[in-house]
Design a protein around this nucleic acid. Structure first.
Lengths: 224, 224
DNA sequence: CGGAGCCTCATTGGATACAAGTTCAAGATC
DNA sequence: GATCTTGAACTTGTATCCAATGAGGCTCCG
């Protein structure tokens, strides 16, 4: 897996820094184009430059930042075209994953997916929460849903390639992607996806997933 | 780009070490499962542990090695199934790239491809060379050919994802993939690919590329 | 007043020193 | 005899230190 670290969370400073910087980028607290200086981050996380440096190297490998040899590191900018390209490749990979999953998933997978779906619907229905919390929760569950399907494809390489792109894609305008109408659409399409997987229909699953992702791309292009 | 460094090649020790280790893995001089110790590599490359460590972190990100927190690093093993999975995803990505390239490539791209093809045929025809040299040359040209088509797809994300897999895939049994009959088949299919691109036929290009890669997977499974 | 060259300074890259954890083996105990 | 314990050496992870280089500002000249 590319970026899931489930080891004891207090041990490697480099990992904590990696996650922290990644979160700051995803949250927009580190804006695209912004310069990153190792010493500043080191002080912010109460660490030395060594683990910060290691984290930055990893982030560069994941495509979050860009290191230029002796000049410095900046958060990578992405043009609308690049974003569109990312979604295109995601559509390709994840639709293939959905098709495979339709032929390979078991009852447990389907149960997990249904559980995620239920939680997502509950989170959406809960109108007492602040909209920000809803968006955050939905975003996390959405990611879990897609991840689960990738797993169910039983092709680790495919899952990893797609997960990489998912992570990068999520740094763009989460709020536009999860406005209320978008959430409704997402819920509907996820239901379809579960139906397709349950009925073991690869072509259907593939098509729904492709439509799901390309639809997201389109709404992103319209609003972003 | 993931792993192309075209800056002045004497400046960053970390990059030189990265390339060196990567080559050793691709050449099989570092075997899958073998343990990597930073101090050893540091001495071998006349460097300190710092750049070696940086290189290892990058290699882990690229999927060449596996770091376990305080235990050590080993060259990643791949089961035949994983290899098959890699080829499956490559087929998916590169066939899509070929399809896009058919609609987007220009005369310059086609010229470059033709040049690579000619060089490859020349290398094959030259029977005075040692077989090892032929294989090495053909392997490099083959990689260049595929890379060129990825470029011509004009989708950097797609190109990067596929290139990543290509690099990983090439560490497996280069010699089986480039036995004489395989080279002949490769040359033939590359010719078809150029024809499809030249006639701007996306469906054809896509199909040929898919057949090309899945064929390679099959012959690899048969011999490896 | 504007531009080119130099110079200082901030920042990155590498080396070394140190701390902490893991593995492996030898020994003791059941 | 097998297993658990304990200890020592090795290896990784982090901190600090030093060198080298790119960037920005300042001055001097046109």
């Amino acid at each position: 897996m590319t970026s899931t670290a489930r080891e004891k969370p207090g041990l490697r400073m480099a990992d904590r820094v990696y996650e922290a910087i990644r979160r700051e980028i995803l949250d927009g607290r580190l804006a695209p184009g912004e310069k990153i200086t190792e010493a500043v981050l080191a002080e912010r996380f109460a660490a030395s430059r060594t683990p910060v440096r290691s984290a930055i190297v990893r982030l560069a490998g994941d495509g979050f930042v860009e290191m230029t040899p002796r000049s410095g590191t900046v958060v990578k900018r992405r043009t609308p075209n690049e974003v569109s390209d990312i979604y295109e490749v995601r559509a390709l990979l994840e639709s293939a994953a959905a098709g495979l999953a339709a032929g390979r998933c078991d009852a447990r997978d389907l149960g997990d997916l249904q559980a995620i779906q239920s939680e997502m619907e509950a989170a959406t229905a809960g109108s007492w929460q602040a909209e920000d919390e809803v968006v955050e929760k939905v975003s996390a569950l959405n990611q879990a849903f897609h991840q689960k399907i990738l797993e169910a494809s039983r092709n680790a390489t495919l899952a990893d390639s797609a997960a990489r792109l998912m992570n990068i894609g999520f740094l763009i305008n989460t709020y536009a992607r999860f406005s209320r109408p978008e959430i409704e659409r997402s819920l509907f399409e996820h239901r379809q996806l579960i139906a397709a997987l349950t009925s073991r229909d690869p072509a259907w699953a593939e098509a729904v997933m492709r439509a799901h992702i390309l639809g997201a791309r389109n709404s992103l292009a319209a609003e972003g």
